[in-house]
Write a protein that binds this DNA or RNA. Structure first.
Length: 509
DNA sequence: GGCTATGTCT
C-alpha cells in the first residue's frame, strides 16, 4: 500500500506517455524493479517528495500547511538535494516553506536554495533569498557568496563573480585570504586561469598575503589548461617568495604533465620527487596509475600499483577505481573485474564511482546484461544507481539501437523517488530519437524536450547553437512534431496557435 | 554535492 502511494510519475505536469514496453523485456524489468525498489530511504522522507512533485505552484503552500511534517534542517536539506534535477520545483518548495508560520530556514537550506535558483539563472530569486537570510541575521556567509560566484562563472559571467568578490563587504562579509583563494579556485576550475592570474592574483597577492594554497590553485589552473611551463613558473615564483612547495604542489604538477600528454616529463618528475625525498603519498600513486594507464601503459601502471603496496602505502578506493578504469579502457573488462574482485578480497567496499566505472566498461564491451546485474548488485554495498549510472546505460542502449529499453530505464529512474534525469539524460534520448526517426520518435522527442525545459534544463541558445549547430533547429522540429500531434488530437479545438507551457515561449503552427 | 590546494566518475 505504501509502495503505491510512494510511486512517483516521471512527469506529473505533462503526462508524458512514452511507449511502454511492458512485456518486451521481462529480464530487464525483474532485475530493475525487484532489486532497486527496496528503498533505503525512510518513508518519512519519501512522502513529502511525492506530494511536492504532484502539486502546483498554487497548491504547494496549502499542501505544506496540511502536511504534518516537522521540517527539520536535515529534512529540508535532504529534500532540496533530492530535487536537485527538479530545480524549479525545488525552488517553489523552498519558497512555500519560508511562507509557513513557524518555519525558519537554516543557513545550509538557504545556501541550497540559492544554489538552485542561481543554477536556473534566476538571480532575482537567489538575491531575494540572500536578503531574507540577511534579515534573519543568518548570512550571507562567505560560502553563500562563493556559491553565487560559482554560478555566475558557469553561466559565462566571470566579471560579475569578480565584482561580487570585490564587493563582499557590502554584503556584510569580510574579504580575507580564504575568500581570495576561493574566488581564484572558482575561476581556475572553469578554465579562466588567465583572468584569475591577471585580474586578481597579480593585483591582490600582496594585499591578501597569498599563501602556498593560492599558488597551488594558480599552478593547477595552468595545468588544467595544459600549460605546464606556466605552472612551473608559478612554482618558481612561489619558492622565490619563500614558500615551500608541499606534496600537494608536486601532485598537482605530476597530474598536469599527464593531463598535457607529457608522459615522459611526468615520469622524470616523479623520479625527481623520489630523489629529492619528497613525500610520495597515495595521491601521487593514484595519479601515476591513472596517468600511465590512460596513456596505454598498463604494465607500468600495474608496476606502480605493486610498488605502492610493497612500500606499505595502502591504496585508497580512488586508487582501485583508477586502476579498474584504465583496465577497462586500455586492457579488458575481464581483467578489470579481476581487480574488482581483488579489491573486495582486500576488504574494500566499492563506492558509486567504482560501480560506474565497471558498468561503463561492461557496456563498452557489449555486456549489457552483466551491466544490469552490477546495477542491482550495488545495493549490497549501500550504493544506489545515480543519474550518471543511468546515463551510461541509457547511452549504450540507445547507441545499440535499443531505444525502447533506454526509455524504459528512463521511466524507471524515479522509481525510488530521488533519481531524476538531468540535461545529459534528455540529450541522449532526444538525440537518439533524431537519429532513428521512426514514426512517433519525433513526437516523443518533443515531449521530452518540453519536460526537460519544465524541469529547468534550458541550454543557453548561443552555447547550444554554436557548439552543435543543428541543435536549436532540432529542438524546433521536435516541438513542431509534438504540437502538430496535439493539434491533430484536438481537432475540435479551433485555435491554430498553441501556448507552450514554458514561460516566454510561444509556438505557432 | 562541497566549499581553500592534489588522485577515482559526469
Amino acid at each position: 500500500m505504501l509502495a503505491s502511494r510512494l510511486r512517483i510519475t516521471n512527469s506529473p505536469s505533462t503526462s508524458l506517455s512514452l511507449p511502454s514496453p511492458t512485456h518486451a523485456f521481462p529480464r530487464l524489468r525483474t532485475t530493475y524493479t525487484s532489486n532497486i525498489a527496496s528503498p533505503s530511504s525512510t518513508p518519512e522522507d519519501a512522502v513529502p517528495l511525492a506530494l511536492i512533485l504532484n502539486s502546483t505552484a498554487m497548491s504547494l503552500p496549502q499542501v505544506l500547511r496540511d502536511l504534518e511534517v516537522d521540517w527539520t534542517q536535515s529534512l529540508v536539506d535532504k529534500t532540496l538535494k533530492r530535487l536537485w534535477n527538479h530545480a524549479p520545483k525545488a525552488v517553489q518548495f523552498f519558497q512555500a516553506l519560508t511562507g509557513l508560520p513557524h518555519y525558519t530556514p537554516s543557513v545550509s537550506s538557504f545556501d541550497h536554495a540559492i544554489d538552485l535558483a542561481a543554477r536556473l539563472r534566476d538571480y532575482k530569486t537567489a538575491w531575494r533569498f540572500v536578503a531574507q537570510m540577511r534579515a534573519l541575521r543568518l548570512g550571507p556567509t562567505p560560502k553563500t557568496l562563493a556559491i553565487i560566484a560559482e554560478r555566475y562563472v558557469s553561466a559565462g559571467k566571470p566579471d560579475r563573480a569578480i565584482q561580487l568578490f570585490l564587493s563582499m563587504h557590502k554584503h556584510g562579509c569580510r574579504q580575507d585570504l580564504t575568500s581570495f583563494n576561493t574566488i581564484l579556485d572558482i575561476l581556475c576550475k572553469s578554465g579562466r586561469v588567465e583572468m584569475a592570474y591577471n585580474n586578481l592574483f597579480k593585483v591582490f597577492k600582496g594585499r591578501f598575503r597569498a599563501d602556498s594554497v593560492s599558488y597551488n590553485i594558480i599552478a593547477n589552473g595552468w595545468c588544467l589548461r595544459k600549460r605546464t611551463p606556466r605552472a612551473l613558473e608559478v612554482l618558481k615564483d612561489m619558492v622565490e617568495r619563500g614558500l615551500t612547495p608541499s606534496s600537494t604542489t608536486y601532485n598537482i604538477m605530476l597530474n598536469g604533465f599527464f593531463k598535457s600528454g607529457q608522459i615522459d616529463e611526468a615520469w622524470k618528475f616523479f623520479l625527481q620527487m623520489k630523489k629529492r625525498k619528497c613525500v610520495i603519498d597515495v595521491v601521487t600513486y593514484t595519479t601515476l596509475v591513472h596517468g600511465l594507464g590512460i596513456a596505454g601503459e598498463i604494465r607500468r601502471a600495474r608496476n606502480v600499483f605493486n610498488e605502492m603496496m610493497r612500500k606499505g602505502i595502502l591504496p585508497s578506493i580512488a586508487t582501485y577505481n583508477a586502476l579498474i578504469q584504465v583496465m577497462c579502457k586500455k586492457d579488458s573488462v575481464d581483467n578489470a573485474l579481476i581487480v574488482f574482485d581483488d579489491m573486495l578480497r582486500e576488504g574494500y567496499v566499492p563506492n558509486i564511482t567504482t560501480y560506474n566505472v565497471v558498468i561503463r566498461g561492461l557496456c563498452h564491451s557489449g555486456y549489457m546484461d552483466k551491466a544490469m546485474d552490477f546495477m542491482s548488485r550495488m545495493h549490497q554495498d549501500r550504493c544506489k544507481p545515480n543519474v550518471q549510472t543511468f546515463n551510461v546505460v541509457i547511452r549504450y542502449l540507445c547507441a545499440a539501437g535499443e531505444i525502447e529499453k533506454g526509455l524504459h530505464l528512463f521511466e524507471n529512474m524515479g522509481s525510488e523517488g530521488d533519481c531524476f534525469p538531468n540535461l545529459d539524460t534528455y540529450n541522449i534520448l532526444i538525440n537518439s530519437m533524431f537519429v532513428r526517426k521512426k514514426a512517433n520518435d519525433l513526437v516523443v522527442a518533443g515531449k521530452l524536450l518540453i519536460e526537460m525545459i519544465e524541469r529547468g534544463f534550458l541550454p543557453r541558445r548561443d552555447t547550444s547553437s554554436s557548439r552543435h549547430p543543428g541543435k536549436y533547429l532540432q529542438c524546433k522540429y521536435a516541438l513542431h512534431y509534438y504540437y502538430r500531434e496535439q493539434l491533430w488530437k484536438s481537432k475540435s479545438n479551433k485555435s491554430s496557435a498553441i501556448e507552450l507551457p514554458i514561460a516566454g515561449l510561444r509556438y505557432q503552427i
